[in-house]
Design a protein around this nucleic acid. Sequence first.
DNA 1: TTCACATAGTTGCATAATGAATATAAGTGT
DNA 2: ACACTTATATTCATTATGCAACTATGTGAA
Lengths: 221, 221
Amino acid sequence: MEQNIILTVDVVLLTLKDNALQVVLQKRTWDPYKGFPALPGGYVHTEEDLDSLAAAKRVLKDKTALVSPYLEQLYTFASATRDPRGWSVSISYYALLDIETLMSQGSDRFLLHPVDDLPQLPFDHNRIIDSAVQRLRNKSTYSAVPCYLLPELFTLSDLQQTYEKVLGCKLDKSAFRRKIGELDFLDATSKARTGVHRPAQLYRIRPAKNLVLFDRTISKI
Amino acid sequence: MEQNIILTVDVVLLTLKDNALQVVLQKRTWDPYKGFPALPGGYVHTEEDLDSLAAAKRVLKDKTALVSPYLEQLYTFASATRDPRGWSVSISYYALLDIETLMSQGSDRFLLHPVDDLPQLPFDHNRIIDSAVQRLRNKSTYSAVPCYLLPELFTLSDLQQTYEKVLGCKLDKSAFRRKIGELDFLDATSKARTGVHRPAQLYRIRPAKNLVLFDRTISKI
DNA sequence: TTCACATAGTTGCATAATGAATATAAGTGT
DNA sequence: ACACTTATATTCATTATGCAACTATGTGAA
C-alpha cells in the first residue's frame, strides 16, 4: 500500500546552563526551513537503522558528535499537517547531558537556547520541546532522572541544585539528603571535591537496569 | 527519499474480567499471519487520518465497533525486524473499557485473553501487550487510571477492587477511602446501588483536562 | 416484627514519615 | 588562631499513614 509518509526521528537534547534548562538546536541545512534553527533530527535510514532507538542515536551523533547517557522515547508526533512535504512522523526522543561534556564539543556545531524563551521553530518543534520539558520536569518529581544532567561524579549539593533548577523551586537540604539517602541509588566514591569550604563527597549514580522511581514525589510547594 | 516503510497503529484494548486483566484480540484477515489472533491494528490511511490518534480511534472502531473513554499513546515500536514485510512502525496505543460496555458488542467480533497467559502472537504483539500492561499497572500506583476500567457509575468498593485486581495486592479499606477522598477527583451522584447489604453510593470520575496524579504512590506491599 | 449477617462508611490511635530548625565538622582566607 | 561558609548530621514538632474498631444500613430468615 502506497502511504507516502515521511519517517523521521527528532532528539530534544537538554542540558542545564545559567540556572536554566537549555535545548540544543541546529541550523537546518536543507529545505524546508533551510537556515532556521531546529531540533537535531533526520530521516530513518531503513537500510542502516535497525530500530528507531538506533536511528535516534545515529542522528544525535551525526548532527552533534555527542552520545547521551540518557535517551528516552518521548512521543510520536504523526500527522498530515506538521510538515509541508506531506504526512509525516517524528518518533521523538529526549536526551540529557551535562553542560561540560556538551561544551567539550565545538560549540559551533549547535546553538543552545533556554527552553522557557524559544523562538518560533520549524514544524512542530516548539511543541516537541515543550513536551520534553514537561516530561523532564514531571519525571524529576518522582525519579532520579536529573542525575543525567550532571557529570559522572557530583556532590549532593550539585544534585539538589539540579533538582531545584529543573523543578523551579527550593528544596530543604536535610529533607532532600535524607530522601536521597533512603532511595539508595547513588554510590559514594572515595573522592571529594575540595574548595573554599568543607570538602563535599562525590557520588555517581548506581548503574541500574531501570530508572529509580520514588514512592512519593518531591514536593514542589 | 525512498523509505519503504510500513506505518501502522495498534491498539491494546484492556478490560477486567474474572478478576484479571484481559486484552482484546482478533483473528487477522490478511497475510502475514492470516487467521492468527492479534491486536486490532492497521495501516495509517494518510488520506483519511489527520494524525495518529485519529488513526488509532478509527482502527479501534473499525475493528471492534468500540469507542474507548481512555486512549493513550503507549510507545512506538519501529524496527527492521518486527514485520516480515519490511521496516515497519507501529504507533501503539492502549485503551481501557469496562467489561459490560465491551460485551454489549457482539462477542464474535473479538477474543478476550488474560494478559498473564497469552499465546505466541504475531509480530511483536506479545511485547506490545506486556508494555501496555506494565504501563497500566505502574500508572495505577500513582493515578486514577483504573477508573476507566469501570462503568460510568461505580462505587468506592468497585474502585478499590479494580485497583486491587490491576495492582495484584490487597488494599486497606479505610486508607484507600481516605486517599481517594483527599484526591478529590470523583463526583458523588445522588444515586446508590442497592443490594443485599447497605446501599453503596455511586460515583463518577470528574471530567478533567488531565489525568489526576498522586503525590504518593499506592503501596503494593 | 426482630434479629443475624454482610457490606458500606467513619472514627480513632499508634506508628512512621516529613518539614525544617539546629548542631557539628571541615575546609580556606585573613 | 579565628571567622566564615559550606557540608553533613541530629533532633523535634507536626503531619501522614496503617489498620483496628466502631457505627450505619440494607436484606433475608425465623
